[in-house]
């Protein structure tokens, strides 16, 4: 959705090399996947598509994606040790080459799971200069750049859901920068993505979580 660009995007970011797209962008994709999943997963199968598959390992893309899943920032030198750190953190990773058709050449697919049975499948692309976009969250087409905090609301597809959520945000004085609603099919499960200028606070989150028809809420910080 919203792309924030500043002078620090041109002279910057501060990052661990060698490639803003294949390394720094890959860390950010991992961070976004982790944030959407809600914790460090116990298992991650990472599919590499296009240039990520062909030249990614030479750029440390593999290390970078794992680092992101561990919550390590793009400028943190421990990216180099991400595989060892993953073992310590109980994260088991395997990589596969995948063909995602017309997807952007720098695309990764994450299949994440945890012992409590939670799973998530996400796809995202690194567009250059560290800019990224998550394009799929489970069954939903999305566009998440990670440039602003994001509120994810899983809900039932029925009238009044968007109004109920945005009313809470209005009352809590949270400004909405961008918004998408995506659904599996009419009347089934749906996903609301709301980009906000400031991260949504605990109170607002609790109120949204208990609203009728809302089945899950998560805050994804800017990465």
């Amino acid at each position: 959705m919203t792309r924030q660009r500043s002078l620090f995007d041109v002279v910057g970011p501060v990052m661990v090399g060698p490639s803003s797209s294949h390394t720094a962008g890959a860390v950010r994709l991992g961070l976004l996947a982790r944030a959407v999943f809600g914790s460090t997963p116990a298992h991650a199968r990472i599919g590499l598509h296009g240039s990520f598959a062909s030249t990614g390992r030479g750029h440390g893309t593999d290390l970078a994606l794992v680092a992101g899943l561990l919550g390590i920032a793009p400028d943190d030198l421990s990216i180099r040790d991400a595989v060892r750190l993953a073992e310590q953190a109980g994260l088991c990773v395997d990589f596969v080459d995948v063909d995602l058709g017309q997807a952007h050449p720098n695309t990764a697919r994450f299949e994440l799971s945890s012992p409590d049975g939670r799973t998530a499948t996400l796809e995202g692309s690194s567009l250059g200069g560290g800019d990224v976009v998550l394009t799929r969250i489970d069954g939903y087409d999305v566009e998440v750049t990670g440039d602003l905090p994001l509120l994810l609301v899983a809900h039932l597809d029925r009238p009044g859901e968007v109004a109920a959520v945005t009313a809470v945000l209005a009352e809590e004085a949270v400004n909405i920068a961008g918004m998408q609603v995506s659904r599996e099919r009419r009347g089934a499960d749906a996903l609301m993505l709301i980009e906000t200028d400031l991260e949504v606070g605990e109170d607002a989150l609790a109120r949204i979580a208990t609203a009728e028809g809302v089945t899950g809420v998560r805050v994804v910080p800017a990465v």
Partner: peptide, 17 residues
């Protein structure tokens, strides 16, 4: 330093840092 996975400032990219 960039090629060795060291910390640099992308300016405007890692490759041209």
């Amino acid at each position: 330093v960039n090629a060795s996975m060291g910390r640099i400032v992308a300016a405007p990219t890692g490759g041209a840092s």
